[in-house]
């Protein structure tokens, strides 16, 4: 008779332990490398003998600086393109659902089933062999935009599929133009989704190696330089690059989390206002 009352808490204990073990598996390497990057005893930094040598080496290496610029350009352009296209596509599908909705969804989600490396080489074959265009930043941006478009599409869709278009109708009944309604009602409510999509796609394309690698020719990006160095063995400045990128991604995710929380709060209060009006 005591089993039924004991079983749920056992189960919760077990899954909680599993969760902790998996987090440890994911994050211990990250913390280990971060500690290694700030100490002279890089192999076993427990306790670390503090040093900033790895970061000094990184700053004085001009290749990394140039690569950082290129990665930032790819990231920014890809984020803008993929988020703008995905936003238009989603609002179009939601507001004007037509006969071709299923086919369009299939086309938009299809890139998920093709790995980065196949995307990279096939785009290289297409642009290089069939179009006669050599590797350059623009092609790399467009290929990354394909991959990121799907992610942006999913991120925005997951957050907006419950969006209530009656809010816009209500605004228009009270005299707003459709554009005004979109700008003043839809956009504030969709802002967290758009923000998280653009930041995520920036991070993804910034850190992408396999798509960019085949399309850039000799233009270095940060992951490509790191990969090139890694092939000749692990070096302290790689730990420094890794740590900086991990920190930047953690900060980006914190920003996304805050925007989602603020957005949820705003959505709730706005829904209450509308309810109060009607």
């Amino acid at each position: 008779m005591r089993w039924p009352s004991l079983a749920p808490s056992l189960w919760i204990g077990f899954t909680a332990a599993l969760l902790c073990a998996t987090y440890a598996f994911l994050y211990v390497p990250i913390v280990h490398v971060a500690l290694a990057s700030v100490s002279t005893n890089t192999m076993w930094p427990y306790p670390p003998r503090w040093s900033t040598a790895a970061y000094t080496a990184l700053i004085h290496n001009r290749v990394y600086l140039e690569a950082l610029m290129n990665s930032a350009i790819i990231g920014l352009a890809t984020a803008v393109l993929s988020t703008a296209f995905a936003t238009a596509a989603i609002f179009g599908l939601m507001r004007y659902p037509g006969r071709h909705r299923g086919k369009l969804l299939l086309l938009y989600l299809a890139p998920l089933f093709v790995a980065d490396i196949v995307l990279g080489i096939s785009t290289m074959v297409f642009t290089n062999l069939f179009m006669g265009i050599g590797g350059n930043l623009a092609v790399a941006i467009l290929a990354n935009a394909v991959r990121c478009f799907t992610y942006a599409f999913l991120i925005i869709a997951v957050q907006l599929y419950r969006y209530d278009w009656r809010l816009n109708d209500a605004a228009m009944v009270f005299g707003a133009t459709p554009v005004q309604a979109f700008r003043e009602v839809t956009l504030p409510l969709a802002a967290p989704a758009l923000f998280s999509a653009s930041l995520s796609t920036f991070i993804l394309s910034f850190n992408n190696l396999e798509i960019s690698f085949y399309l850039l020719g000799a233009t270095p990006t940060l992951p490509a330089v790191a990969w090139g160095t890694l092939r000749y063995g692990i070096r302290p400045e790689l730990f420094a690059v890794t740590t900086l990128i991990n920190l930047a991604v953690i900060l980006g995710f914190a920003a996304i989390l805050i925007s989602l929380k603020v957005g949820r709060h705003r959505r709730l209060t706005q829904a209450e206002e509308v309810r109060g009006l009607t």
């Binding site: 994911l26 994050y27 990250i30 995520s200 991070i203 993804l204 910034f206 850190n207 992408n208 190696l209 396999e210 992951p223 790191a226 990969w227 890694l230 690059v241 890794t242 990128i245 991990n246 991604v249 980006g252 995710f253």
Partner: peptide, 8 residues
């Protein structure tokens, strides 16, 4: 971690 890229 998925967002930090494969190399990192």
């Amino acid at each position: 971690p998925f967002f930090t890229g494969e190399v990192i």
